[in-house]
Design a protein around this nucleic acid. Structure first.
Lengths: 162, 162
DNA sequence: TATAGTCAATTGCACGTGCAACTATATCAC
DNA sequence: GTGATATAGTTGCACGTGCAATTGACTATA
């Protein structure tokens, strides 16, 4: 599966192919995510992180999730999520509800206002993702990528639809 | 090139294929970069951002670059780079040199200590990148990716070898 | 030359984040 | 039940970052 020479005895530099595959990945992510973030803020006052959290809530069964679970899904620390939910709550997009059966726990619940704001944002965001990324990939390329991320052991956990 | 239906009339959700290609990308980047960052800090006390800046300096002709150019290469704001170079300078890995012929400008110059630290870090980092990413891709897949990032209009600017 | 306008880099400030410490609740052993 | 331990979530603090304002130096026009 490795490309050129023996698996372990490699040079201390990347060859041009490796370079293109790796640094292109980094660069593409950096540019794409900053553009999408800016776009979402401009159009809906919603940073990408907040969008992501609303996404998980919106697409969950009851529109609610435990704080810890939400943090894990959104790839955020618990304290990071605490603060983010603070902000969303201040905007009325989410509220905290104490968890029946475990007085330690809290559910973050998306409000009707949250759903409405999210629906609008999703439209913008999807359009942006398609225009900049998915729309420039053939179906085969999409398949290759999806399979590849899966193999790298990071996809397929619990990704709601977008 | 788009996958299923007509280019503009799309649903307001991603189909499973799109989902895998897009969210896998996000997830893979998040996980990979945080692991690589932690690894580099643990082994060499060097955050990934600092590593990147040293990389550009180390691989440039004279081991020096203008602040603005370096900021652009490292995808950092100017103020962000100012502060990062402050830190590197405090550690003796870089120094500022006023720019001959333009008294407004400064060159960031990598020091011998900087080169030494970077060389060690590069070894670790390359090993990490190969183990987690490049080593799990076939040569064909690497080629596909490289070409794809290129097409997405973000690669190929000025990426030194790693 | 003066003066106006531009450009390079830095600084003040606010913000989002993670880690470690903390509080409150739950669970387990006895 | 009682005490030790674990778990959920929040808070104090420090850090890295970007934006806007600032300082100092170059450039063009008169």
């Amino acid at each position: 599966m490795p490309s050129t020479t023996s698996p372990s005895a490699r040079s201390d530099q990347l060859d041009p192919l490796e370079l293109g595959a790796w640094r292109g990945f980094l660069r593409t992510h950096a540019l794409l995510s900053s553009e999408l973030d800016a776009e979402l803020i401009a159009a809906h006052g919603l940073p990408l992180r907040s969008y992501e959290v609303l996404l998980f809530l919106n697409d969950s069964r009851a529109g609610e999730m435990r704080m810890a679970e939400l943090a894990q899904s959104a790839l955020l620390s618990r304290s990071g999520l605490t603060r983010l939910v603070d902000r969303l709550e201040r905007e009325g997009l989410v509220r905290r509800e104490s968890c029946p059966g475990d007085a330690r726990g809290l559910n973050a619940v998306i409000t009707p206002a949250g759903r409405k704001r999210f629906a609008a944002a999703r439209h913008t965001h999807l359009e942006g993702v398609r225009r900049r990324f998915l729309g420039r990939l053939s179906e085969d390329e999409q398949r290759t990528l999806a399979e590849l991320w899966e193999r790298l052991g990071s996809a397929g956990h619990d990704s709601p639809a977008c």
